[in-house]
């Protein structure tokens, strides 16, 4: 799959990545060659193969429904870029 400028822009938008205009052709080239390499998989027929999401055939462990966490807002918000009154602040969201 060869990607062009608009493909890269679309992907970058989905991933919320700011990419400067001048870098787009380079990314388009890189991504195209990575996808081309990846497409070597197509040489193998996998129609009958069950996809494998996990290396081990393990089952989800379950935890008891107990409150184990205490309020650590001060500690957690010490690393936050912008807080006020215990709230994380972001630019105005318009619904």
């Amino acid at each position: 799959m060869s990607l062009d400028k608009s493909d890269v822009e679309k992907i970058a938008h989905l991933a919320q990545l700011g990419i400067s205009e001048v870098d787009i052709p380079g990314y388009a080239d890189n991504l195209s060659s990575i996808l081309e390499m990846v497409e070597q998989m197509n040489a193998v027929d996998t129609a009958a193969v069950t996809p494998m999401a996990h290396p081990l055939d393990a089952v989800q462990p379950l935890r008891e429904d107990r409150v184990t966490e205490t309020d650590q807002r001060e500690r957690f918000q010490a690393v936050a870029p912008s807080v006020d009154d215990g709230l994380y602040l972001v630019p105005r969201v318009v619904e």
């Binding site: 990607l3 493909d7 890269v8 992907i11 970058a12 989905l14 991933a15 990545l17 990419i19 870098d23 990314y27 890189n30 991504l31 990575i34 996808l35 990846v38």
Partner: peptide, 16 residues
């Protein structure tokens, strides 16, 4: 950095 961006974009594309 650029390598992280490349991989995020490849992955975003592969899941889209």
């Amino acid at each position: 950095g650029p390598e992280v961006k490349r991989r995020i974009m490849v992955g975003t594309y592969a899941l889209s």
